[in-house]
């Protein structure tokens, strides 16, 4: 069973559908026991970092998410919230990864948000099994996670600027793009996650 973390994080219908197409049983929940006993945890997110953190805090979910020991996948804002600080609303984050989330520099990146299909570069680790270097994924974001050394498991370039498009630390993974909207490549990534 997959626990899809419920904190009113925008539309979760597409994530649920994508996982169900792969045969997974998905439960939308904010119950600590359900999250901690699930085989996998998917942490979605669309919206504003500060309001998302307020909602997680109100539901008492911060210590619960940190305590997950099964494979965990943050998607889009979900990945950003795994870091320690965001400029979006100047807020502290969950703190699974020590990193600061920043806004794309408008002087460099002419179009913000980045919305569309971009490539992932040098993907590494089991999440990207069978996914080629340079594969296209669907992105939709204005804030980014900087390069993190070993915790970065692939990069993406936007107007010549490279940032972390996926991260991995122990059982915790995060992807900036939307695998549920990324065609066959996204489907493969989710299937890989289910195999971890």
């Amino acid at each position: 069973m997959i626990a899809l973390v419920d904190y009113r994080a925008g539309n979760v219908f597409s994530v649920t559908s994508a996982l169900e197409r792969l045969g997974a049983e998905v439960v939308l929940t904010s119950d600590a026991d359900v999250i901690l006993s699930a085989d996998r945890v998917v942490f979605p997110g669309v919206g504003y970092a500060k309001s998302a953190m307020d909602e997680l805090e109100a539901r008492g979910l911060l210590p619960v998410l940190r305590a997950v020991r099964r494979p965990f996948l943050g998607i889009c804002l979900g990945m950003q919230l795994m870091c320690s600080h965001s400029d979006e609303g100047d807020t502290g984050l969950i703190g699974i990864v020590d990193a600061s989330v920043e806004r794309f520099d408008a002087g460099v990146c002419q179009k913000i948000p980045q919305i569309g299909w971009n490539r992932i570069l040098r993907p590494r680790g089991p999440l990207f099994d069978g996914i080629r270097d340079g594969e296209w994924f669907f992105f939709d974001h204005s804030y980014y996670v900087p390069l993190l050394g070993d915790a970065t498991v692939c990069e993406t370039e936007y107007y010549g600027f490279e940032y972390t498009s996926a991260l991995g630390v122990d059982n915790f993974y995060g992807v900036q793009f939307h695998p549920e909207k990324s065609g066959k490549a996204g489907e493969r990534l989710l299937a890989n996650f289910l195999e971890l």
Partner: peptide, 11 residues
Amino acid sequence: VRRIARNINIP
């Protein structure tokens, strides 16, 4: 719309 969302994997 729900039926479409359930069946496709692109925006």
